[in-house]
Design a protein around this nucleic acid. Structure first.
Length: 817
DNA sequence: AAATGACGGGG
DNA sequence: GTGTACGTCATTT
């Protein structure tokens, strides 16, 4: 038997497991090393879980105990029993550790044992379990000592390589295939049972080459077209291209829910197997919570739509990435600042059935989707990679994770290292209870509405994380009888001496981030450092949320409410202290305060903050955010907004505009209203007064009155969910849609499936009478747009600045006369 | 006001 | 898959 040993240096791209013919679970790694990907097995890891019996039993005689409660069939599944002493949320617990050979047996044994006690860690996916127990980080360099036996590679040893350069190089070592499909859609929504895939485009890039193509089966003379015989050949060709190019990452946009799903279902109809895995194993779609997850073996599938939404969620409080809709077009245009090629999607089937010239446009569009996706991928992948290497989960898992799942994975890893038992997930009843019992939130000081000048904003650096680390907030540190403790303002005591994993992990992350930030200052162009810093920030900021997250394994109402109680305590302390020192605090939210400098000098306020900082716990710090020239504060009054909400706009000294809480961009307002509102706000900020604003509004009203505004700016976008016949109340959009159907402009189906845009025209009595679909409308009703769009939009801002609606209305009348 | 339902992205 | 389990907004009751 030929067998030899060798060593490779590389990183884990993906991990899963196989069941051999005896159902034994064997870990399988995809190791990427020097441009090659190895399929590597690890035989030295077996499934296990813990059991804690309800009744007192003789643990030393556990085998007989199990014999008395389990069938012989179940008993055969237990390979070994160990007695373990561990800690569960601060309390010692004695457990039985049950070893088995197959992952299949774990849920079966758990089922049989449930009525006799509690099973722990019986729901940790095997591949995750492996990374946790072996303390191996995905997307991190390791040296793998391998043994080759009959072409099968097994791993003997894995050792971490602490080489920053090697780790950094990972960023450029992926073969990435970005793809997009077009489908035939004669009935609006393509149905994979009948409607073929008509084009598949891809944009491929790796360290050594770039390639882009559209595969299709109707004649189109363009150099980027690869012509094949039919749909079946097209799909087969796509699969073989993925293999030939040896893609490590296959990425799409909403591809889990659409492209991949459609290709799988379509292939089924064509009686072919759609499999784009690298190693043996199916390509399938699994439910991952509410979304779907594509499972490949040996490659990572990354759905950039998931990633984009994730980033949008975690950066919700910043202006960096806030869009009203996360379509590929919007996202691409936002990151690249260039327009994306567009097409009327409802028309794709007609284009396909039409001339070659038209199809050429479709092919170009198809390719532009893959190219845009590549840009989106390029923008966000560094962060995904750093999230992956920071917590150690695989790229494909990170790409479908919520922040809670990222934190949970880290906690599970450290729980293992600290001999702590991983708490079970809550059942539905507990979830409901937690949900019904929310945690008191942050403190918000609502501002007096108006325009202010000369502001300074300070905020606590990483307030929640630093509160957790400074006060040892962790469910396992909660104590009643301890002597050396932190007591939160709402009365929970945390043992100072207890080594608890949440503060432990957090202080490690915060320390690392400080180092990274320092390096980043020296090397502002480093994509890796920027992404790493962002990744750590995202993870650290998620611990508080995780403590109060209803499905959390480490849920602790006491901890979560202690964090917010401390936050309220500290921010109020700053406010009081600032006011005692003669500063006017205009506004405060959670971790920040806005001070109106008035006659105070900058030096004076900076001095105050520095003095204040010296009194704070070591890891806490109040930082200067920025100086602001002008700020507009508006009080919240609308029904939707419960409680005190941020609603302000301000402009910093450098001219950066920060807008919070204004409904500036909503689909159901016309573009003219949105643009005018934005302009009004910006003008107030830049001019520092409302004088110029009056002129602007007057000008817009005049333009509207004289019919100078393009119809496209007047379109109000909305969408109908029901069939147009089923409405009791006829809103303008329903009226417009009905007219369009009656006159044969659109079919009922077209209306029902997509977005519709309508314009309020001159002819008719009610607004519904006047409403016509975009394309049918020949004019617009100036009165409607002035009174129902422009005035309400600008009044949202102006009413707080002592300008009445009548004043604005008079602007239009003056000109008319 | 509370409960229920639909949507997001994709064509 | 050692299965999972959203957040928001509109409409209806």
């Amino acid at each position: 038997m030929a067998s030899d040993n060798f060593e490779i240096k590389g990183f884990i791209l993906d991990i899963d497991y196989i069941l051999d013919k005896n159902l034994n679970a064997v870990i399988r790694l995809a190791v990427k090393s020097n441009g090659k990907t190895y399929e590597v097995f690890d035989n030295n890891f077996k499934p296990y879980f813990y059991f804690h019996p309800d009744s007192e039993i003789d643990l030393l005689d556990a085998e007989n105990y199990f014999k008395s409660i389990l069938t012989t069939n179940d008993m055969e599944k237990i390979k070994n029993i160990e007695i373990k002493e561990m800690e569960l949320i601060g309390k010692n617990i004695e457990l039985l550790k049950l070893h088995t050979s197959s992952t299949l047996f774990v849920p079966l044994l758990k089922q049989s044992l449930q009525k006799y006690g509690t099973c722990y860690e019986a729901d940790i996916p095997f591949a995750k379990r492996y990374l946790i127990d072996k303390n191996i980080l995905s997307s991190h360099m390791y040296s793998f000592l391998l043994e080759k036996d009959n072409d099968v590679l097994t791993v003997k040893e894995i050792n971490k390589i602490e080489d920053i350069n090697l780790n950094n190089n990972i960023l450029n070592s992926f073969n990435v295939l970005c793809f997009d499909i077009e489908t035939y859609n004669p009935n609006n929504r393509s149905n994979p049972k009948n409607d073929p895939v008509i084009m598949i485009s891809y944009y491929y890039f790796s360290a050594s080459k770039t390639e882009q193509k559209v595969i299709t089966y109707k004649k189109i003379s363009k150099p980027f077209i690869e012509y094949v015989e039919d749909e079946k050949q097209m799909i087969l060709r796509f699969i073989s291209i993925i293999n030939e190019l040896d893609a490590d990452i296959v990425t799409g946009y909403n591809s889990s829910n659409f492209d991949i799903k459609y290709l799988i279902e379509r292939s089924h109809a064509l009686k072919i197997d759609f499999n784009i895995s690298r190693f043996k194993g199916q390509t399938k779609i699994e439910r991952h919570g509410m979304s779907e997850k594509v499972k490949l073996s040996g490659r990572a599938h990354i759905d950039m739509y998931n990633v984009v939404k994730f980033i949008a969620t975690v950066s919700a409080s910043t202006d960096i990435f806030r869009l009203n809709s996360y379509t590929l077009k919007n996202v691409y245009e936002s990151i690249s600042k260039t327009k994306k090629q567009d097409i009327d999607k409802a028309n794709i089937f007609r284009i396909w059935d039409g001339s070659e010239e038209e199809r050429m446009k479709l092919a170009e569009y198809n390719l532009s989707d893959s190219f845009s996706l590549y840009k989106v991928f390029e923008t966000f992948f560094p962060l995904i990679l750093q999230l992956s290497s920071t917590i150690g989960e695989t790229l494909s898992n990170v790409s479908v994770s919520t922040t809670g799942q990222l934190v949970e994975f880290l906690l599970m890893k450290y729980a293992y290292q600290f001999n702590q038992l991983i708490p079970n997930k809550p059942n539905e009843y507990e979830i409901k209870q937690r949900l019904a019992n929310p945690i008191t939130g942050a403190y918000v000081k609502t501002p007096e509405p108006g325009i202010y000048h000369n502001l300074v904003i300070f905020d606590f650096r990483s307030l929640y994380p630093s509160i957790i680390t400074s006060h040892n907030i962790d469910p396992s540190a909660i104590c009643t009888a301890c002597t050396d403790y932190h007591e939160s303002p709402d009365g929970t005591k945390f043992d100072k001496k207890k080594t608890a994993i949440i503060p432990f992990i957090l202080s490690m992350l915060l320390k690392e981030r400080l180092i990274i930030k320092k390096q980043y200052k020296q090397d502002k162009n480093s994509v890796i450092l920027g992404a790493k810093s962002q990744a750590i920030k995202i993870i650290s900021n998620s611990f508080y949320g995780y403590l109060g997250y209803t499905r959390s394994r480490w849920y602790s109402r006491e901890c979560a409410s202690s964090v917010t109680a401390y936050a309220r305590f500290y921010i109020n302390q700053v406010i009081e202290s600032a006011e005692a020192n003669g500063f006017k605090v205009l506004y405060s939210d959670t971790d920040s305060i806005a001070i109106n400098l008035e006659n105070n000098s900058r030096e004076h306020v900076l001095e105050f903050v520095s003095k204040y900082n010296s009194k704070l716990p070591e890891s806490m710090e109040l930082e200067l955010e920025d100086f602001y020239k002008t700020a507009v504060f508006v009080s919240k009054k609308t029904k939707q907004e419960k409680g005190a909400k941020k609603k302000y706009a301000m402009i910093s000294e450098s001219g950066a505009i920060k807008i919070r809480g204004f409904e500036l961009v909503r689909r159901d307002w016309s573009k003219i209203a949105r643009n005018t509102q934005q302009l009004v706000l910006e003008t107030i900020l830049k001019q520092g007064s409302v004088d110029e604003v009056i002129k602007i509004i007057k000008n817009i009203i005049n333009k509207i009155n004289s019919g100078d505004i393009e119809l496209s700016d007047m379109v109000i976008n909305t969408h109908l969910r029901k069939s147009i016949d089923n409405y009791d109340i006829i809103s303008p959009e329903v009226a417009a849609a009905r007219k369009a159907v009656k006159q044969g402009f659109k079919t009922k189906q077209e209306i029902q499936e997509g977005n519709i845009g309508y314009i309020v025209t001159k002819s008719g009595e009610s607004i519904s009478d006047k409403a016509l679909l975009e394309g049918m409308a020949k004019d617009y009703d100036p009165d409607y747009y002035i009174n129902n769009q422009i005035i309400p939009a600008v009044m949202k801002i102006l009413k707080e600045l002592n300008i009445t609606e009548q004043q604005i209305k008079n602007l239009g009348k003056q000109k008319k006369l």
